[in-house]
């Protein structure tokens, strides 16, 4: 058995997973979604159909007379809707509660037996998935929208960079929220309740069904600052359609970053509590 290909144990030394482990997990997340091409096609078709429906409603609102609605003109609203339809695929607003299912079935223990904690494993894989989604689920609705309607193109070069940052932060916020919903499975029989709550609140207070500025201003500002939902859809889109000055936009990025830090810390805490429950009470 001895030889250069023996299965002799690794000489015990200091060894820890490096950033490469996370890169590899992200690559696997990318690849996993890339293998389901038909599902991607189905998703972009669905998102595009909804794009037409949502934008029809927005157009009707504008056509009712005023040239702008809640500070958005026609082209800004078009971009808001179509880039929004792409963005929900990137942040993956609605995902099947896969991790909750792993907790319920006990498969989560195979995640615990790895030298990287489950949350970091999932986060790395999700970023890889988002990378794939940018190339597919984001691009298609935006192109469809651009072909059929007159979209607003950013005037400032810096907007593109800000939008990219904002999208990354939005993905992190969305991941954290979905993670918290899934982690509820450590304590609940099933997570349909939290799942429903998330779907509803993220859609209506996040800027998906209509920009949060359709609410009274005070309420919109309150939502943006005090809840994580607008950080997922509304803020990236407001940055893309250049609502407000670059300073305001940097401020919005700051709000997102604040939510990322808060939520990831919360996730970590919840995961530790969940693991503790699992480890003490059993699956």
């Amino acid at each position: 058995m001895r030889g250069d290909d023996s299965l002799a144990p690794h000489a015990t030394g200091s060894r820890a997973p490096s950033y490469r482990a996370y890169l590899a997990l992200a690559a696997a997340g990318f690849q996993r979604y890339a293998t389901y091409r038909q599902a991607t096609v189905a998703a972009v078709v669905t998102n595009s159909v909804f794009g037409f429906l949502r934008f029809a409603v927005m157009l009707a609102v504008i056509d009712a007379g005023t040239r702008t609605v809640a500070g958005y003109d026609n082209r800004q609203l078009a971009t808001f809707v179509w880039a929004g339809q792409g963005l929900i695929g990137v942040v993956l607003l609605w995902a099947l509660p896969e991790f909750a299912e792993r907790i319920r079935t006990g498969d989560v223990i195979t995640d615990l037996l790895r030298p990287i904690d489950p949350m970091s494993q999932l986060l790395a894989a999700d970023l890889g998935r988002a990378g794939y989604a940018v190339l597919t689920r984001f691009v298609v609705p935006v192109v469809v929208g651009a072909l059929v309607f007159d979209l607003y193109a950013p005037r400032r070069q810096v907007t593109y960079a800000l939008f990219a940052c904002s999208t990354l932060l939005a993905t992190l916020v969305c991941f954290s929220c979905r993670y918290l919903v899934n982690a509820a499975a450590y304590w609940l029989l099933d997570v349909r309740g939290p799942q429903t709550a998330w779907t509803l609140t993220s859609g209506i207070f996040g800027g998906l069904y209509f920009p949060v500025w359709f609410f009274p201003d005070a309420m919109a500002i309150g939502l943006i600052v005090a809840t994580p939902f607008p950080s997922v859809i509304q803020i990236p889109l407001d940055i893309l359609v250049e609502r407000g000055s670059p300073a305001v936009q940097l401020g919005l990025l700051g709000v997102q970053a604040g939510w990322v830090v808060t939520l990831l810390a919360l996730c970590r805490w919840v995961q530790r509590r969940g693991e503790r429950k699992l480890v003490i009470q059993g699956g």
Partner: peptide
């Protein structure tokens, strides 16, 4: 397998 190599830093 390739992924596990990175996860376990082998």
């Amino acid at each position: 397998f390739a992924l596990l190599r990175h996860v376990y830093a082998v």
